[in-house]
Simulated assay, not measured.
Amino acid sequence: MTKNLFRSAILIVSVALVGSAAAADCETTVEANDAMQYNTSEITVDQSCQEFTVHLKHVGKLPVASMGHNWVLSKTADVEAVSKDAIAAGAGDGYLKADDSRVIAHTKLLGGGEEDSVTFETSKLKSGEDYEFFCSFPGHHALMKGHLKF
Results as ranks from 00 to 15, higher is better:
G94R: 04
C49S: 10
D34H: 06
G139T: 02
S117I: 03
K145D: 03
K124T: 07
Y131H: 02
A91L: 13
N70T: 10
F133D: 00
V59K: 07
S14M: 14
G94N: 03
S101K: 13
K61G: 11
I10L: 15
T122L: 03
G94D: 02
D78Q: 13
D85N: 14
D99S: 12
A77N: 11
A35V: 11
A16Y: 10
D34E: 08
P63D: 15
A23F: 14
I104Y: 01
A35N: 15
K149H: 03
A77R: 15
S66F: 10
R7A: 15
T29P: 12
H58R: 04
L110Y: 04
T40M: 13
Q50S: 15
G111L: 02
S83F: 14
K97I: 05
F133N: 00
Q50E: 15
D46W: 12
E121Y: 05
L109G: 01
N39K: 09
T28V: 15
K145W: 02
T53L: 07
G60F: 07
A98C: 00
E129S: 12
G146P: 02
C49H: 07
E121I: 06
K126W: 00
L110A: 05
D99K: 10
A9R: 07
T53S: 13
S48C: 11
L5V: 11
F134G: 00
K108D: 02
G68S: 08
G19D: 08
T40A: 13
F133P: 00
S8P: 00
S127M: 02
V15R: 04
V72I: 15
T122A: 00
A24M: 10
V45T: 10
T119H: 01
M1N: 06
L110Q: 01
F150A: 07
A88W: 04
